[in-house]
Computed example of a mutant assay.
Amino acid sequence: MDIHSLFSISPFDWPAIVTAVFCDAIIGLERQLRGKPVGIHTSALITLGTSYS
């Protein structure tokens, strides 16, 4: 087993996942600072789940 197959998440790609989580972490941070019920962690998980559906 080589390192490439160990970190392979085919058919997804790492840049898309990182971008989705980063963008929604910004939205989650804004919501958390304003005291809204959905914070950073929840928003990041929702975006990650829906980015490939």
Rank of each mutant, 00 (worst) to 15 (best):
M1G: 14
M1H: 03
M1F: 04
M1Q: 14
M1A: 09
M1R: 14
M1P: 11
D2L: 04
D2T: 04
D2V: 05
D2G: 15
I3R: 09
H4F: 06
S5I: 02
S5C: 06
L6S: 13
L6G: 14
F7G: 12
F7W: 01
S8A: 13
S8F: 01
S10P: 02
P11M: 01
P11Y: 01
P11Q: 01
P11I: 00
P11H: 01
F12K: 03
F12H: 07
D13G: 06
D13T: 08
D13W: 00
D13M: 02
D13P: 00
D13F: 00
D13N: 15
D13E: 09
D13Y: 00
W14I: 04
W14M: 09
W14L: 06
W14N: 05
W14K: 05
W14D: 12
P15K: 02
P15Y: 00
P15D: 03
P15G: 05
A16Y: 00
A16C: 05
I17N: 07
I17R: 01
V18K: 04
V18T: 12
V18M: 08
T19Q: 08
A20I: 06
A20W: 00
V21D: 01
F22N: 05
F22K: 07
F22V: 15
C23K: 10
C23D: 08
C23T: 13
D24H: 11
A25V: 14
I26K: 07
I26N: 11
I27F: 09
I27K: 10
I27P: 10
I27A: 11
G28T: 06
L29K: 05
E30I: 15
E30Y: 10
E30A: 15
R31V: 07
R31A: 09
R31D: 07
Q32T: 14
Q32N: 12
Q32D: 15
Q32W: 08
Q32F: 11
L33N: 09
L33V: 13
L33K: 14
L33M: 11
R34S: 11
R34N: 13
G35W: 01
G35N: 06
G35A: 03
K36S: 05
K36I: 06
K36G: 07
K36P: 07
K36R: 09
K36M: 05
P37W: 02
V38G: 03
V38R: 06
V38N: 09
V38Q: 07
V38K: 11
G39K: 02
G39R: 04
I40C: 13
I40P: 11
H41Y: 06
T42S: 15
T42Y: 00
T42C: 10
S43H: 06
S43E: 08
A44Y: 01
A44P: 12
A44E: 10
L45Q: 05
L45S: 06
L45F: 12
L45A: 13
I46H: 03
I46C: 10
T47Q: 07
T47P: 04
T47I: 10
T47N: 02
L48K: 04
L48Q: 05
G49R: 01
G49E: 03
G49M: 12
G49N: 02
T50L: 03
T50K: 01
T50P: 06
S51Y: 02
S51G: 08
S51M: 12
Y52P: 04
Y52V: 14
Y52S: 14
Y52D: 01
S53R: 12
S53Y: 02
